[in-house]
């Protein structure tokens, strides 16, 4: 019996090809996108990564965020920040390295924004209580009283070189609120943990506070939609193309209440004591670090277009998108080629 070589060779080649193709399929399948959801930091957190161990890795990230929340929340009496506030005007308290770092960074961002972002805003936030459903417009005397307690310069933090991390709020009634920065820090920490586990790309979305790290699998930058502040959530007015950046938006369009026909939103100007009213309806900051993007988006929203844009222009590696209440969209120079306005109701200046 003679087997001709030609057909046998073809058959072998074809079978090998099939095997390799299937092997390729299996590998792709294993790296299917994975999406994990948790409610933390008073918001919806989504992790979107591709890795064969994605469920375990996501759990590690959520555990880390839970740790941060436990230390910094105002919704519990025994968080480090709650204890710091309870001891205001009495004594310095010892805090973890995490809290020490975030407070130090918060003060640095306050200096950069000349107080437009201020972690000691607590008394005013409590007074206005926007989003609680019980909100009312406080009287001017109450506002002035709360305003007198707001001053980031008064917060005493010992230097990082010391063995113990201690912090002191010198005046009775002072309240630190890290609501404008803790999510950004959590995004940075989430990214760090993902990198430690060998994940090279993915998206962590902390309630609209986006950490887009690495780039898309096809090598292109991530496409991050920017909320249209005048439309329901999920409607975007443009897309920013980024790799390895935090994208954080602040605006008064989601959390607000209306009284006597006037709208009062949740971003309080630490210099006036009233909701910021400088012509902007939203600001998006794009930066390497979430902690900076988070604090800056609040600060720049308070500063308004002219001063805010000047500030961002002066910073290296930080860009921003400004949306005014006249539906005009401004971007800093670095975003000219990576921002695309898609909604015709707005004009790009």
């Amino acid at each position: 019996m003679v087997i001709e070589r030609k057909p046998a060779a073809w058959l072998t080649a074809l079978i090998l090809l099939a095997i390799f193709t299937c092997a390729g399929c299996a590998k792709v399948d294993e790296q299917a996108p994975y999406i994990a959801h948790e409610f933390m930091l008073d918001t919806d957190i989504i992790i979107n990564i591709e890795d064969s161990r994605a469920p375990q890795i996501s759990t590690a990230v959520f555990q880390r965020i839970a740790q941060i929340e436990k230390k910094m929340t105002l919704f519990s009496q025994d968080s480090e920040i709650a204890v710091l506030n309870a001891q205001a005007g009495q004594k310095a308290v010892e805090v973890s390295a995490d809290t020490h770092y975030v407070l130090t960074k918060a003060i640095a961002m306050s200096k950069i924004t000349r107080g437009a972002f201020d972690p000691t805003i607590g008394p005013l936030v409590k007074l206005w209580d926007v989003g609680s459903g019980l909100a009312r417009v406080p009287g001017d005397a109450e506002i002035q009283k709360a305003l007198a307690l707001v001053d980031y310069r008064s917060l005493q933090i010992n230097p990082d070189s010391d063995q113990l991390h201690t912090v002191f709020l010198p005046r009775l009634g002072q309240v630190v609120d890290l609501g404008g920065i803790a999510k950004g820090y959590s995004g940075d920490e989430a990214k760090r943990i993902l990198l430690e586990h060998g994940v090279r790309q993915g998206i962590i979305n902390l309630g609209g506070n986006v950490m887009a790290f690495g780039h898309k699998k096809d090598g292109n930058p991530w496409r991050v939609g920017i909320q249209n502040p005048l439309a329901p959530r999920g409607t975007y007015l443009g897309i920013v193309y980024v790799s390895d950046k935090a994208v954080v938006t602040s605006g008064g369009y989601e959390r607000y209440f209306i009284k006597n026909g006037r709208r009062y939103h949740h971003i309080i100007d630490p210099t006036t004591g009233y909701p910021a009213n400088n012509g902007l309806i939203s600001v998006t900051v794009v930066a390497d670090r979430g902690i900076e993007a988070d604090a800056l988006s609040t600060g720049v929203y308070v500063l308004g277009l002219t001063e805010g844009k000047q500030l961002i222009d002066s910073m290296d590696g930080v860009e921003a998108i400004f949306i005014t209440n006249e539906r005009k969209v401004y971007t800093t120079a670095g975003l000219k080629d990576c921002f695309q306005l898609t909604d015709g109701d707005f004009s790009y200046e």
């Binding site: 979107n48 998206i203 979305n205 609209g208 506070n209 986006v210 887009a212 898309k216 991530w222 496409r223 991050v224 939609g225 920017i226 909320q227 959530r233 999920g234 975007y236 897309i239 920013v240 994208v247 954080v248 938006t249 605006g251 989601e254 998006t284």
Partner: peptide, 8 residues
Amino acid sequence: QQPDAHSF
């Protein structure tokens, strides 16, 4: 054409 993430 939907974006990969949404910032709000």
